[in-house]
């Protein structure tokens, strides 16, 4: 049975899922949701699909999932036979989960700043930008240590779903008026990610890495 993704092109969270579907060479049916200006994700029809009124939602063989990080786990668990994208080794698994939570938590401040600047969301932009910078600093400090150890990725020697989950809102930071001048290790990690085979850009991220 086909995989179906409820998707919006400009959503960084949907982009997380599109990226992994691409890396894993999975075919899927794209169901565009009129996120803006229609606000289709807030309609009763869509809330029957996801009561939280959020995208992405993924349907796969009778399972319906919300939350980009949960969807990444599902796809990697089910379809990545190599086990590289979601490593099960005890010294890696917990770390991947930890950075997945960070992607869905602290890093979402960068998403908030972007929604404010791009689509006019009514929120405290200074707080959003300050929190995004705090999250970027944590990620840059971590990637700096990884560089010194000779590593490229957030966890281990191969990109994982932690990299996939952290990439979009970091790469899209400029959309929310947040520069990456202070984060050299983070910039080099972004560049390595964009050089991965089957990487696909989205609006706001250059094709020419």
């Amino acid at each position: 049975m086909a995989i179906k993704l409820y998707d919006y092109s400009l959503s960084g969270s949907c982009y997380k899922v599109r990226l992994l579907l691409g890396f894993l060479d999975l075919e899927y049916e794209r169901h565009p949701i009129g996120f803006y200006p229609e606000r289709e994700h807030r309609t009763e029809t869509f809330r029957a699909i996801n009561p939280l009124g959020q995208i992405p939602v993924l349907e796969d063989d009778g399972i319906r999932l919300r939350d980009a990080q949960a969807i990444l786990c599902h796809l990697a668990n089910k379809y990545d036979m190599s086990g590289l994208w979601l490593p099960r080794a005890p010294e890696l698994y917990g770390l991947v989960m930890m950075w997945l939570m960070f992607a869905g938590g602290e890093l979402m401040a960068a998403s908030a700043a972007r929604l404010h600047d791009l689509l006019g969301y009514d929120l405290d932009i200074e707080t959003a930008r300050r929190n995004a910078h705090a999250a970027f600093r944590i990620l840059d400090d971590h990637l700096t240590r990884r560089e010194i150890e000779g590593g490229t990725w957030i966890v281990g020697d191969h990109p994982t779903i932690a990299d996939v989950a952290c990439f979009p809102y970091t790469a899209l930071s400029n959309d929310g008026g947040i520069g990456l001048e202070d984060y050299p290790a983070l910039r080099n990690w972004l560049r390595s990610f964009m050089h991965l085979p089957k990487f696909d850009a989205m609006s706001g991220i250059s094709e020419f890495a």
């Binding site: 990456l180 080099n188 560049r191």
Partner: peptide, 17 residues
């Protein structure tokens, strides 16, 4: 303005001085 090692071959990087 940067560490030599962190300006990778084939890259352009922002800084403010």
């Amino acid at each position: 303005v940067a560490l030599d090692r962190q300006i990778k071959p084939g890259s352009s990087n922002p800084a403010i001085v």
